[in-house]
Design a protein around this nucleic acid. Structure first.
Length: 620
DNA sequence: GTAGGGTTAG
């Protein structure tokens, strides 16, 4: 007797191991048929394993639904919950809610486990309406004091941005547990209410805080663009009694990437090594992105090569994006080819990165070919981001008519990003008429964005329409809109120095300005004439315009770099806006005359200056 | 059974 039991359970284990090897529906059907024939489908354990496997794969989740609804006799609450849970994190979480409706008319009663799963589906759908419905429903059914259900509700409200709803529930809990705290904090963080989020975080009992609590507040800061604050908290975490885990590291690395904080990024990398935190694909991605955005492509490539043999599509994408904003189009395309050879399927983001690379490096034909075959070859329908890349690519290449036609015939309405890139193309290629029309559209779309007015005024000025330029400036002033000030950063021995145009707050500002004047004289001796095109403004007076370009923050930063670093040291500068034509020219000359490599990150990409040339090939 | 992470067009 015991022998037959063993052999049948061995047979089941063997069948289940076959199940886990299924990748096509035909194979799955075979295993299913075998299980029916062997009577395994009367065994709740076997049914559970079968459904769980199907639910864990996106290709088989509809098969699971079919088997569940048509192939089982009165499934119990446990199986209903299993299905609702599985579908809640599938690519169609709404099917989880639909299944619940069928559960209500079935013979299986709900239990306390049902609601957290349903609310998980709501969070994944970011569905506020459905959350309120389930909230009302579970209250009526008497689960309003079930801590799991309440915490799930807080989380759903947090995810849908309703921090007041989340707070109301939180305040009613007698003794909020760890998850209650973390969820309500996330509610504020998600909505960018970082002051309240931090207040709650400080109020949270120290003994309760875990790595998730810390990471929630840190990534909240990152999402709000408050990267310095994020890193401060990360350091505080490091000194607390909760050591950072890999998720905390990934969040902190994202802050480093945005700040261009290479030193701190390196420190986090070595921390992971020292603490033997294994570099999974998410961490590899974060590291590659950080090194790439901090200008160190060599190290990004090293992390890529050291990561697991079978790399996720995200890891490949991170490397391709890195090449894109370093202007290494050939490397980006080679990586894209290599990845497909390895059998990794590109996703929508990969294709955006590939198209960006084509756009930044002028690979127009290759870009067009990727774009027009992406749906056929990769089953990715072009989204506005893809159209944006192609419009940008055509515009930069001077094919303004084609870019404009693409905007007109694309299946979605152009947004400010698309118009913005067309306007930039109009400026580069001096298409004033089209540029003026786009400028007006942009101001209407983005009336509180200073840059829109500035660019529009500039294109008017380019056509010498001084009155229109002045009018645009006045409109901006009347609305009280201000332009984001240009700002450059340079890191020296671990300290970051920040400069803004005309800024006099730096302790050594007088020395720096003197240094810049000396550099300028040196450049002039080598034939430097200022490029004033980007500073057309509405100023007719060249001297006035020249005075403005010479206050640009990157010039102060490079002068400071020359003052403070040994000859031959690479100078690394980070900028928050796009570099202007004159500053670009100056960097090229400095690299040649002072024999310095200069790596400059602007708003969108990298420029590497060496011996009078830039890797962008003056194409940015 | 509930809470935190990476790649995305100007």
């Amino acid at each position: 007797m015991s022998l037959t039991l063993t052999s049948s359970s061995l047979a089941l284990e063997h069948t289940l191991s076959c199940l886990h090897k299924c990748s096509k529906e035909v194979e799955l059907k075979q295993v299913h048929a075998h299980m029916l024939k062997s009577g395994f489908f009367h065994d709740p354990y076997a049914i559970t394993k079968f459904l769980s496997f199907c639910l864990s794969s996106s290709t088989f989740s509809s098969y699971a639904q079919d088997v569940f609804l048509n192939g089982l006799d009165r499934p119990d609450t446990f199986l209903w919950n299993l299905m609702i849970k599985g579908l809640s994190s599938s690519d169609q979480p709404e099917s989880s809610l639909l299944l619940y409706h069928r559960m209500l008319s079935s013979s299986a009663p709900h239990n306390p486990y049902t609601f957290p799963f349903l609310l998980k589906a709501c969070s994944n759908l970011s569905a506020f309406q459905e959350t309120t419905q389930i909230h009302a429903h579970l209250t009526k059914l008497g689960y309003a004091n079930d801590v799991y259900s309440v915490n799930s509700l807080i989380n759903s409200y947090a995810v849908t941005g309703r921090f007041n709803h989340a707070r109301l529930l939180f305040d009613r809990i007698q003794e909020p547990d760890l998850v209650s705290w973390n969820s309500v904090i996330k509610g504020y963080a998600k909505a960018g209410e970082m002051v309240t989020a931090l207040t709650l975080f400080r109020k949270m009992p120290e003994a309760k805080k875990n790595a998730i609590s810390w990471t929630t507040i840190i990534s909240g800061y990152v999402q709000a663009g408050m990267n310095k604050e994020a890193l401060q908290l990360f350091h505080e975490m490091h000194n607390s009694n909760v050591p950072p885990d890999k998720v905390s590291l990934a969040s902190a690395l994202s802050a480093c990437a945005q700040l261009g904080a290479l030193e701190q990024g390196r420190w986090i990398h070595s921390y992971a090594d020292k603490e033997r935190i294994s570099i999974d694909s998410v961490l590899a991605c974060a590291l590659i992105d950080m090194y790439a955005k901090c200008g160190d492509m060599e190290e990004a490539l090293r992390v890529f090569k050291d990561s697991k043999k079978t790399k996720s599509v995200q890891v490949w994408t991170a490397l391709i994006s890195g090449y894109a904003y370093h202007g290494l189009g050939g490397e980006a395309m080679n990586t894209f080819t290599e990845m497909q050879k390895m059998g990794v399927k590109p996703n929508a983001i990969t294709l955006t990165a590939v198209l960006t690379a084509c756009s930044y490096t002028g690979l127009v034909e290759q870009g067009k070919s990727v774009f027009y075959t992406m749906e056929r070859d990769h089953n990715v329908k072009p989204t506005i981001e893809h159209y944006g890349c192609v419009v940008d690519m055509l515009g930069r290449a001077g094919l303004l008519d084609r870019a404009k036609r693409l905007v007109q015939k694309m299946p979605m309405k152009a947004n400010a990003v698309i118009w913005g890139s067309l306007l930039k193309a109009c400026q580069i290629h001096k298409n004033i008429e089209l540029g003026e029309r786009i400028g007006e559209i942009l101001i209407r779309m983005d009336p509180n964005h200073g840059g829109r007015y500035v660019h529009t005024a500039n294109i008017h000025a380019m056509g010498k329409k001084w009155d229109k330029a002045a009018e645009t400036r006045r409109l901006m002033k009347d609305k009280g809109v201000v332009k984001l000030p240009g700002c450059s950063m340079i890191s020296l021995e671990g300290t970051t120095h920040e400069f803004t145009a005309g800024d006099r707050t730096h302790a050594e500002i007088e020395k720096i300005r003197t240094k810049w004047r000396a550099v300028k004289r040196e450049l002039e001796g080598n034939g430097y004439v200022p490029e004033l095109e980007d500073v057309l403004l509405d100023l007719a007076d060249d001297e006035e315009r020249e005075a403005i370009v010479h206050q640009h923050s990157e010039k102060l930063a490079v002068a400071y770099g020359l003052m403070k670093t040994k000859p031959g040291t690479t100078i690394r500068i980070m900028k928050n806006l796009r570099v202007c034509k004159d500053c670009h020219k100056v960097m090229k000359l400095v690299s040649k005359i002072y024999k310095r490599d200069i790596v400059m990150r602007d708003r969108t990409r990298f420029h590497r200056f060496r011996d009078g040339k830039c890797t962008c090939g003056d194409y940015w």
